[in-house]
Amino acid sequence: MNDPFARLPEAASFTVTSTTITDGATLPPAHRSGRDLSPQLSWSGAPAGTKSYAVTVYDPDAPTGSGFWHWAVADIPATVTELPEGAGDDTGSGLPDGAFQLPGDTRQARFVGAAPPAGHGPHRYFFVVHALDVASIGVPAEATPAVLGFTMAGHVLGRAVLTATAETPGEVVERLEVSRVVPAPADAVFAVLTDPQGHVDIDASGMLMAAEGHPVERAGDRFVVHMDRDALGDVPLGKYDVEVVITKLVPGEEIAWTVEGRTGSHVRHVYGYRLEPAEGGTRVTSYYDWSEIPEGWKRRLTFPVVPESALKATLGILERTVRRRMARR
């Protein structure tokens, strides 16, 4: 079983407890995707010489090849030994002065709850308090948790670990859908989704660097996206181009596409958005469907390659992008 500490420098142990989660037990609903409430954490017995703490939450069992980072907080003062429940909200309202949250694998600088794929079995969630020998670890606020971990490696005096689990039972789902009401008319939302640059603007992964092409108008239209896999640091693919191929387009109602590489066979999984009127704006449903891909690809890749949490993050960025474009009109 994957041990996230196996190749890290040894460090002294100290104690972390929680009033909202239990070591070895199942995560309560409050700390899962949808509610995304960070748990209460208290720690004691840190090694002498501790000058600050960092807190991380990591799922090594996520089907990504690199695990999944749910939360990272740096520069917690050495005088602080507790974080209240909900400290990891969008504003970090419960964090002490000087501490800050780094963007996790959804590219949100906040706590993101557990969301293991249906039928994938139990996942472990490692809640770790790191005792450090420096008052500030010196990473920028936009750094990834992996960069934080790499930088901390030579400064860790001790680790306090609490492990909880989560599982989504049932048959393996081959389609994900998430929704959000965007306070804007459908045509404003659709203008972003049909614009090649709009796809870059709403990307939550950090891989989409730029796009070339005209706004799409019908199924069969294409445009090019310049990718940089090094932004994720998981697979050494570097920079490459893909073509986005529109598979469905109903103006103001729905758009879907697949992605083709420049060489070889194509996976043919489908991404899309449905729009419908809603009180306060437009209900936007983002979906990801891999039900029609060839069996060969199902054996080669672990699906979904895009988690539900990433779809949610993209919807938030979509709303922000639509607001900004409308403000410029």
Rank of each mutant, 00 (worst) to 15 (best):
P122M: 03
A87W: 13
T165Y: 11
E10Y: 06
I21M: 08
V182C: 06
R325I: 00
A164D: 12
V129T: 14
D221K: 04
G94H: 03
A231N: 10
R229A: 15
K298I: 06
I246P: 00
V57I: 15
G206H: 08
H130N: 15
Q101N: 05
R329V: 01
L193G: 10
F303A: 04
V147N: 10
W297N: 03
D61C: 12
V16R: 02
S265E: 13
H70K: 13
A327C: 01
Y273C: 00
W43I: 05
D61A: 15
A310K: 00
H123S: 07
V245D: 00
F5Y: 13
W257A: 08
E253Q: 15
S42H: 09
D105T: 04
E243Q: 07
D195A: 07
T163H: 11
G281Q: 07
E217V: 13
E308K: 02
I293G: 00
R222P: 06
Q108Y: 07
A231S: 14
Q108G: 10
I255R: 03
K312E: 01
A160D: 04
L102M: 06
A99I: 09
L311A: 09
F126C: 13
E85V: 12
S286K: 08
H123W: 04
L311M: 10
V267P: 00
Y287K: 00
R7F: 15
V139M: 06
P140S: 14
D3I: 10
S33N: 08
G213T: 13
D105G: 01
W43P: 06
V128H: 08
Y58M: 03
L275T: 02
A11W: 12
S42Q: 14
A46M: 09
S42V: 14
L232K: 07
A184C: 06
D97P: 03
V270D: 02
H226F: 01
G220F: 12
S38K: 03
A78S: 15
V200A: 03
F100V: 10
S205G: 09
G149V: 12
S18G: 01
H120L: 10
R218I: 11
G316T: 01
A141E: 14
G34T: 02
P294I: 04
T17G: 05
D75Q: 01
K248D: 15
T321L: 01
R324K: 13
G24L: 09
T321M: 05
T263M: 15
V147K: 15
E253D: 11
G154W: 08
V305R: 12
R229C: 02
S38I: 06
S309G: 02
L157A: 14
P28H: 14
V173K: 01
G92C: 03
E243L: 08
G119S: 04
V235Y: 15
V305G: 15
A135V: 13
